[in-house]
Design a binder for these strands. Structure first.
Lengths: 338, 338
DNA sequence: ATGAAAGCGCTAACAG
DNA sequence: CTGTTAGCGCTTTCAT
């Protein structure tokens, strides 16, 4: 069996309590005592048992990242993947480890696995199940929402300003002289979809351009579906071919570009294309994709920061809205060759 | 405070032990007793405390996925991301949760965090630190290696047959009549790099084509670096332009295609390109990428299967080598339009 | 500055 | 079938 605090106590002649203090409050011990204990511990290969410690302190030092519903798979998701990555890193800096919880796991009979595991806090990405939210809250486990808001009072969330993000793309295209701007949307959560679509409509209104549903398609956010969606727009519009397409994420934009090129359109000369998320897809595309950066990394960092604040019972922990940024690349502006 | 086993015992009049049994060995109880206890538990919102349980059983139901060194970031990595995803899902099916451990975390002073957390087993992805491997082994924690092998005796690993994988790509290109086949390699771990490069050399030998180092470039596996590497090959060879490029992963291939197109070469007519990993990059590329599938999903599943077997002290748990498969797409063979 | 004792919530013999 | 007892490894009063 592994070395315990008791083994070290016996070895050094001090009590369990003193050995424990050597690791928790070293300053309370006499330097010599501390040295003796620490040396013995090192020699014997002692490692504090986090489980036993958690029994008493009621802190496990573990967080859960739970992604719900249609957004799974998490990890290979070009939007939630980077968020998770930054969550893991930020958590580590604060001394927390993170469980990543698959979509299926959370659909367990009661879905309370992370409660049983006594995590100190939970990050829900995308739209969480309301019942589950209530359960965690009732249990007193701090929760932070990422990329979603909840009607529950005092629910802390981190979101990116999608409305502004789409407006950035629209303004950019308008300033380039584009007037026939199509919208290629994905079947995201209502929360996201609605705000992005509204921004598109409002921007058109600002420009004095009437909204025309023939310029709009919603598809699954996969390359092939997006390509088909773009084809439908082109077929429908014929000579009124759009001179720009705003896409609700980068994968959609990649599909749009494929369809446009196959239809003999040049990007960006004939049709400018914008993506959303500024994901890894952008640099893989040809031409590289102009995209709205929803600050995925910062979302993860902020989520952890807020969650830690909640765990530590800090006062005035409020939600965060992050500004979006436009990353201009070759899919909207012809790049000068270097 | 939350409801404990003792609360239910008091409520129902049974002993702690009986209540415990209701959740561990329900078949041992009298149906009525069981019913009474389960109902009380449900009413009172009882949830077994996994931490307390782990104290006794010495099982936490947690695994760690540790990725070491140059391969971080894990999650956004097109190769290790899918592996992790399948690990998480397979683990869940076996009743395990998984900690994902960042590169930095593992570089902690002692790097034994997961030992302290008492995980039941560890999956190391890519090249692990030898000292760390020994530490986990010495502690008696089961370990499975993914995409790497160790000289330590009895170390269980899951790898894909890279040698065969590269041969598949080479044979494919040769059968298409390509004879001037370049190699674009990435700075991977020695283990991977060596086997893939050797396969390239051996395949050429099989074809009776002399190896020519002017056809070979090694770069960082990023799009821009790969593009530059491909440019160097083209510049160096001039009129001897290769008619095929074997790339050691898909990102490299994406960069190669960019460089080729900018040089006025048609893919695949003038130059055929193959990737490796069959990652999400393949369908984003234009043209879509022929790629060697290293069976990422199966690697994750096998890793979990083996790890569970080790945890359960099953006999004869041996390493696994998975066959690679070639996925043919438009970057090597002109696709008929559908 | 250190020790003694209690106990976190649960399971696992061992009785009965 | 059910209860009693002991104790996992550790922290934390409370003494001394």
């Amino acid at each position: 069996m592994s070395v315990t605090i008791l083994d070290i106590a016996k070895e050094t002649g001090f009590s369990k309590a003193t050995v424990s203090r050597a690791f928790i409050n070293p300053e309370l011990l006499q330097p010599e005592t501390l040295k003796t204990i620490l040396e013995a511990a090192a020699n014997m290969g002692y490692r504090p048992n986090a489980i036993a410690r958690a029994m008493i302190t009621k802190r496990t030092g573990n967080l859960a990242f739970i992604i719900y519903g249609r957004q799974a798979p998490v990890i290979t998701n070009p939007f939630y993947g980077p968020i998770l990555e930054s969550v893991v890193n930020a958590a580590q800096r604060q001394g927390y480890s993170v469980f990543i919880v698959s979509d299926e796991e959370i659909r367990l009979p009661s879905g309370d696995l992370m409660l049983q595991k006594q995590v100190d806090g939970v990050i829900f990405a995308s739209q969480p199940d309301l019942g589950m939210l209530k359960m965690y809250r009732h249990n007193g486990t701090p929760v932070v929402l990422v990329n979603h808001r909840s009607e529950l009072p005092d629910m802390v969330s981190v979101i990116s300003d999608d409305y502004q993000g789409v407006n950035l793309a629209m303004d950019h295209l308008y300033s380039l002289g584009r007037r026939r701007i199509a919208l290629l949307g994905g079947n995201f959560t209502e929360f996201i979809l609605h705000r992005r679509e509204q921004a598109y409509r409002d921007a058109l209104a600002r420009f004095g351009i009437p909204y025309n549903e023939r310029y709009v398609e919603l598809t699954e956010p996969h390359v092939t579906d997006a390509e088909a969606g773009m084809r439908r727009i082109l077929a429908r519009l014929g000579n009124d071919c759009p001179d720009a397409v705003v896409c609700m994420n980068d994968t959609l934009a990649a599909g749009a570009i494929k369809a446009l090129r196959k239809a003999g359109k040049r990007v960006p000369e004939d049709v400018a294309v914008t993506g959303y998320d500024d994901s890894v897809v952008c640099t893989l595309c040809e031409p590289e994709l102009t995209s709205v950066d929803g600050c995925k990394e910062r979302m993860g960092e902020e989520a952890v920061r807020l969650l830690c604040a909640l765990i530590d019972n800090k006062p005035d922990v409020g939600s965060v809205v992050l500004d979006a940024q436009l990353k201009v690349r070759a899919s909207t502006v012809v790049q000068t060759e270097n």
